[in-house]
Amino acid sequence: MEQEQKLIRNSIELKTIYELYYSELCIKAAKILGNNQDAEDVVQEVIIEFWNKRSEISIENPRAYLYRSVYNRSLNLLKKNIKLNSEEIIEFENFPLESSIVETLEEKELHAKIEKAIQELPEKTRAVFVLSRFEDKTYKEIAEDLDISIKTVESQISAALKILRKKILKV
């Protein structure tokens, strides 16, 4: 009886964890990784680990714990991806001035274009951009998280903005 009660309680808890956190954790991971499948894999690994460890460690704030774990694990994968896709950034000529985004694009259209453009950035550039944009990290934090220099972070941020604008304006 007690055993069964425990089983039921456990499954209630586990489902609640998935229900409350799965989707938002996946969104967080997907923003960092730029890939939904990878994001779901990362989140599932984190929850499984969390579940297996729950009796050994005391976790006061599961949400914060899960968020931190998802972030760290996403970072690890991100670093691997950057190494695999270490394409050099194409040097961009000076910015084109023929038209402006504000005047030419509707908001909805702009959102779709920005989304696509972010996904198409070279992996390192994208990584730096999303950590700054979605995680609100400083240059120093990004440099530490990705094991790169602050100089590189700065040049990647600049490259990201240049490329994004160019891609968005391109018909």
């Binding site: 702009l110 959102h111 920005i114 903005l161 994004l164």
Partner: peptide, 10 residues
Amino acid sequence: EIWNQSKNVL
């Protein structure tokens, strides 16, 4: 504009 609008795109 790109910076502000990109906050919520994904």
